[in-house]
Design a binder for these strands. Sequence first.
DNA 1: AACTAATCGAGACGGTACGTCTCGTCTTGGC
DNA 2: GCCAAGACGAGACGTACCGTCTCGATTAGTT
Lengths: 213, 213, 213, 213
Amino acid sequence: MSTPAPEEGTRRGRGRRPADEVRADVLHTVGELLLAEGLADLTFERIARASGASKTTLYKWWPSKGTLALDAYVHAVEPTLAFPDTGDIRADLLTQLRAFVHVMTETRGGHVLTELIGESQADADLAAAYRKLYSSHRRRLAEERLQRAQEVGQISASIDVRVLIDQLWGAVYHRLLIPDEPVTDDFVVALVTNLLDGIGPRPGLTPAAGTER
Amino acid sequence: MSTPAPEEGTRRGRGRRPADEVRADVLHTVGELLLAEGLADLTFERIARASGASKTTLYKWWPSKGTLALDAYVHAVEPTLAFPDTGDIRADLLTQLRAFVHVMTETRGGHVLTELIGESQADADLAAAYRKLYSSHRRRLAEERLQRAQEVGQISASIDVRVLIDQLWGAVYHRLLIPDEPVTDDFVVALVTNLLDGIGPRPGLTPAAGTER
Amino acid sequence: MSTPAPEEGTRRGRGRRPADEVRADVLHTVGELLLAEGLADLTFERIARASGASKTTLYKWWPSKGTLALDAYVHAVEPTLAFPDTGDIRADLLTQLRAFVHVMTETRGGHVLTELIGESQADADLAAAYRKLYSSHRRRLAEERLQRAQEVGQISASIDVRVLIDQLWGAVYHRLLIPDEPVTDDFVVALVTNLLDGIGPRPGLTPAAGTER
Amino acid sequence: MSTPAPEEGTRRGRGRRPADEVRADVLHTVGELLLAEGLADLTFERIARASGASKTTLYKWWPSKGTLALDAYVHAVEPTLAFPDTGDIRADLLTQLRAFVHVMTETRGGHVLTELIGESQADADLAAAYRKLYSSHRRRLAEERLQRAQEVGQISASIDVRVLIDQLWGAVYHRLLIPDEPVTDDFVVALVTNLLDGIGPRPGLTPAAGTER
DNA sequence: AACTAATCGAGACGGTACGTCTCGTCTTGGC
DNA sequence: GCCAAGACGAGACGTACCGTCTCGATTAGTT
């Protein structure tokens, strides 16, 4: 009989619980709070109350509410956006950008993500974690796809493909974070067209002109 | 004889002061606090102590610390970036973007601005004020310059020039807000080149070769 | 109509309340908590919850829970023990000591007082307040009565009456604070008798002996 | 060789140690902490860190920090005050009281003792342990000496000598615990004189005079 | 000599209180 | 009337300690 007899009741007591169990509880709770109320109303105090974990434990693992929220977002909320490769870079960029825009504008996770970016402006820990856990990974996926397009000649060899990421996804983030203009499908199409074709007057279409350079 | 002599020091007492004087004191104080410590450590409480205004007065004029900070930023900090028009859109975009990047990366005001954008993700009042006082104005200036370029044929007529703003300045904001990659001069040059020339293989320049390499 | 219409409910809001009203609420609440549960279980947190005052307010006025408890004890609990003067110092001491012992052993205030003395061993603020608000006052009353007895020849002129206070009330406190022996009426009687008559062999009763000096 | 070489340092590891060794370490550590910082800043947490024992072990042997502190005080700090017997009770009381006062006012152990008495007002375990380990023992020593004085006629047979202990040592504790008045040598002398000789007018010495002055 | 059972250290856990800070509301008392 | 000064209720902050517990490592008694 290695099991100690639990004399009276199933009272859990205050002692230690397995760390993984606690972590899972916390991340699940924070995920729900984030989707329900956003990052602004999230506090360590409420997380502790709602998750059953103590503040001590929360502070032990996460340096700020932002890093905790990011952790919960990545583990519980984030839909992993696949990056297609059909061989046609124009079509694949459109597909991926449309999927990204859909998540950011039609799901509650989109607002959480912009709040995390906002919070990271004042929280260096969060900024570092965000880059490590999220953005650099996404950036690398895009970079790899663009490099393959470059290798097969769909993108000029002289181009630094990393800049394209800022001119495509970065442009979308710009309209999400500073919403002077809406994020429409026309906008997404224009992003890709402008870059692939250029915005100068069509060379060959106006043979006599040749304004540039 | 029981009245304490008020002659020592500039101790102001509690009576009413002209509204404009108070406003000016507050905005000046907040401007200094912003540059010295950023938006994160700014509070109504500290502003009241440092400026001599009472919290009552602050709440009467500004709904949140973000809107107050923005007000101070616009009135006291922001260097107004002129938008050049030499007739050459490529050169003018480079000039403007370089000036913008300089302010954002080399002055302390740059960090304040990204903090304001961050704060606005959780403060609807600030988001609205930011668009009204700052971004829509800047956007219109750029839009007008781009439209003039379009009218003289430097930009194809089929282009929605508002999208270009997101692909130029928006791309810079992207690297400022999510600093996976640095904001270099090469980056700025690439932004303009990519858009004006397009990133696809150069059509017509190498008729026999086809795709590069 | 100077009265603002209280639109919905009688919700008090969060604004300022008159200081005296708050103080009275707090002292009343602490008085009840003290008598019900003693000083050990008293915390600022519970006082704030029970009294409706905020912790900020409590810390503004009282440096520690001990000083607050003492304040409440003096204002709300302490029965002022009169000091009789019938002309007979032996009888008056007995009367006063018996009243004192009654309060300390038969009422709940007695335990509060010993807890306050205990707490004051580790709280210099409380120790100072205790002397200022309580013990030095009580001491002076006793001292005055004893001096009058000295002036009418009931106590020898060579005696420092302040020492007597320690040998009477101090002896009682000793049995209250370190309860090896009970505080009985016989004990009280013996305190007075021992001092007034001395404990040496009775001079005059054994004319031939004269052991001492 | 996966076993780490244990030769460097005296790093103990986590295995079981002899109980007596652990107890001695703990009591030694607590004794030092007590003298250095007093009882107020003593916690189980710090004792565990400083002594190398785990909290589990501490809680197994001592129910509260007070009882542990008392244990350490008695075993490590307390100078055993001898009780002299020269045959002259007046001289012996003075000797013992002076030695006692010296320890209480001139050594750091004095403050520890008053803190222990203070703590015992809110800790029944400590109060019981204090009586058992310390005060009742000291009381018995004094009682025995006083009884011998009574047997040889230096103290009247009708006196309950236990009361004298409260009127001598208790009076000193009173001034230590509630320091309205200082504990001077005059005070100590007066304690003994007042009791042995009484404080009333000297009977038989000035038969014609009556009351003084 | 190997095995078992106890007991140790280390320290995470759920709680609770600490003392401080800021929020947004409200009262008081000059001006 | 409007203002400063700042007290107020509310509640989050990050830390410390409480007393309970899990986990391995080590050792003392049994086999």
